[in-house]
């Protein structure tokens, strides 16, 4: 099994220290986190971590189980790139003079899907949202023009097949959660699984 990019989505309680608990699951195994984002989720009071890691599926599965084992974690999912819709946001600061002199700004905005979020006498800040290649393209373009500052956010992702967490949470709140919560990946794969 070769390494590939996986996006792990974790639904958690909002608790101090949980970020560390989750982060050390990776660092203990010397696995580098490509990006990590924490934010509210569709359910009030439930937080959502989005973690990007390059690993084999076998390792990712074990990581997801270790994450889910944490007391304050409700659920961990992992997905490949084609199972999610994802975006990253990037900000670029350039000299206003430089841009005004050398570039047709409207072309820049159109071609790179960029927006100017601040325009001042001395500098201008552009923003783009998209996949890594898209935000990188603008870096390449702006570098010769003296890119002063660049920053890119962690990935945020929506799982295409997910029906959200509201119903799940109701299940979790019950003393005896239903079977569907187990989401056992062995189920329905008897042929594959019951042979070595």
């Amino acid at each position: 099994m070769s390494k590939q990019e996986f996006t792990i989505t974790v639904y958690t309680e909002n608790q101090v220290g949980l970020l560390n608990r989750i982060a050390i699951i990776f660092s203990r195994r010397k696995i580098n986190i490509e990006s990590m984002n924490t934010s509210p989720s569709e359910v009030e009071g439930i937080h959502r971590f989005t973690i990007v890691v390059n690993e084999t599926e076998e390792v990712i599965k074990k990581l997801a189980r270790q994450i889910e084992k944490q007391v304050e974690v409700l659920k961990a999912y992992y997905n490949t790139g084609d199972e999610i819709v994802w975006q990253e946001l990037a900000l670029y600061k350039v000299s206003t003079d430089e841009i005004a002199e050398k570039v047709k700004v409207e072309r820049l905005l159109r071609e790179y899907g960029a927006r100017a979020v601040a325009i001042r006498k001395d500098y201008t800040i552009f923003e783009t949202t998209g996949h890594r290649e898209e935000t990188d393209r603008l870096v390449k373009f702006l570098e010769p023009l003296g890119l002063i500052e660049f920053v890119r956010s962690a990935r945020v992702a929506i799982i295409k097949a997910s029906e959200g967490f509201h119903e799940k949470l109701r299940q979790f709140e019950r003393q005896e959660p239903g079977e569907e919560l187990v989401e056992n990946e062995f189920l329905g794969q008897n042929e594959e699984i019951f042979t070595m």
Partner: peptide, 20 residues
């Protein structure tokens, strides 16, 4: 305490695995 919503101490026992 006997329940924490984010914590499932025991997985649910699945009949089909026991049979298998």
């Amino acid at each position: 305490c006997d329940h924490i919503r984010s914590y499932r101490p025991k997985p649910i026992v699945r009949k089909e695995y026991l049979e298998e």
